[in-house]
Computed example of a mutant assay.
Amino acid sequence: MGEQQPKSSKPMTKLRPDDRRDRVLKALNTNASLRITELARTLNVSTETIRRDLDFLHEKDLVQRHYGGAVAKSVGSEPPWAERLIAFADVKSAIARSAIKLFSDKDVLMLGPGATAYTFAKHLAAENRRLTVFTNNLAASSCFAPDSRTRVVIAPGEYDPAEGCTWGPETTEFIGKFRFDTSLLSVSGLSALGGTEVVSGIAWAERAIVAQSARTVLMVDHSKFGNTCLELVCKLDDVDILITDIAPEGELLEALEEADVEIIVAEE
């Protein structure tokens, strides 16, 4: 008898278009950094099929398209903190490195919540510069060594372990007592309406930060473009500089130019 041939694996059942698009949307909600090629491999379809699905979901205003893929639009929720740290990690580092170039020694900075702000703190701590950094981002404050030349002032308030920051009446009152040369914020969404946040308490703190800052810098990757979340933090007129990884286009670009916002595209 000849050798027994291995059985071929059973082909994946072909999904109906609606079911496949549901899976695409669920995948993007779970992992914002998925690319078209990864989605095609996961669902066992061609990249052209995924592109058509993403175009369809974009027309339904369920995803925001970008080069190489898309991100799911969000109004009232964000991925967990740990997932946000991983998503677009190289992009966050590039944005942080570009932001650090904006400051001189002895400047007073205010660093807001968020994963990109945390990444900025890691890079700034490594440079050990003579700056004063106010922050309500406890995760970011932990980046600085005890013997660091950077002075770190932590805003009091209710600690939110899901966001790694403080917020509440004590936080906004504390922020209102100071003036900052520059504030650095990484909002949940950025559209022609302005910067928006998912968590109401964080939005209150960030509005106070913007009000007390001579210059406001948004550190926002392209996945936030076109998203309008629960609460408005700042209008584009309140923003001086946007640091991102891919230049915005269309309505957002027009609104940024009209508001005279300087756009810096970070290089990885």
Score class of each variant (00 low, 15 high):
Glu3Ile: 13
Ser8Gln: 07
Ser8His: 05
Ser8Gly: 00
Lys10His: 10
Pro17Leu: 10
Pro17Gln: 08
Arg23Tyr: 07
Ala27His: 01
Ala27Tyr: 01
Leu28Thr: 07
Asn29Lys: 07
Ser33Met: 12
Leu34Arg: 14
Leu39Cys: 04
Leu39Tyr: 04
Ala40Pro: 12
Ser46Ile: 06
Glu48Val: 13
Leu54Ser: 06
Leu54Gln: 04
Asp55Asn: 14
Leu57Tyr: 07
His58Met: 09
Glu59Asn: 14
Val63Leu: 11
Arg65Lys: 15
Arg65Tyr: 12
Ala72Gly: 12
Glu78Asp: 06
Trp81Ser: 02
Arg84Val: 01
Phe88Val: 01
Ala89Gly: 07
Ala89Phe: 09
Lys92Met: 03
Ser93Gln: 15
Ala96Val: 04
Ala99Leu: 08
Ile100Met: 11
Asp105Thr: 02
Lys106Thr: 11
Val108Gly: 06
Val108Phe: 08
Met110Gln: 11
Gly114Ser: 09
Ala117Glu: 15
Ala125Gly: 11
Ala125Val: 05
Ala126Asn: 12
Asp147Ser: 10
Asp147Trp: 11
Ser148Thr: 09
Arg149Trp: 04
Thr150Pro: 13
Arg151Val: 14
Arg151Tyr: 10
Val152Ser: 08
Ile154Val: 15
Ile154Gly: 05
Gly157Gln: 08
Glu158Gln: 06
Tyr159Met: 07
Gly164Asn: 01
Thr171Phe: 08
Glu173Leu: 14
Gly176Ala: 09
Phe178Ile: 01
Asp181Gln: 00
Thr182Glu: 11
Thr182Arg: 07
Leu184Thr: 00
Ser186Val: 00
Ser186Ile: 00
Gly201Trp: 02
Gly201Val: 05
Gly201Ala: 03
Ala205Trp: 12
Glu206Pro: 05
Ala208Glu: 13
Ile209Val: 15
Ala214Trp: 03
Lys224Ala: 11
Cys229Leu: 02
Val233Met: 09
Val233Glu: 08
Asp237Phe: 00
Leu242Ile: 02
Asp245Trp: 04
Leu252Ala: 05
Asp260Phe: 11
Glu262Val: 01
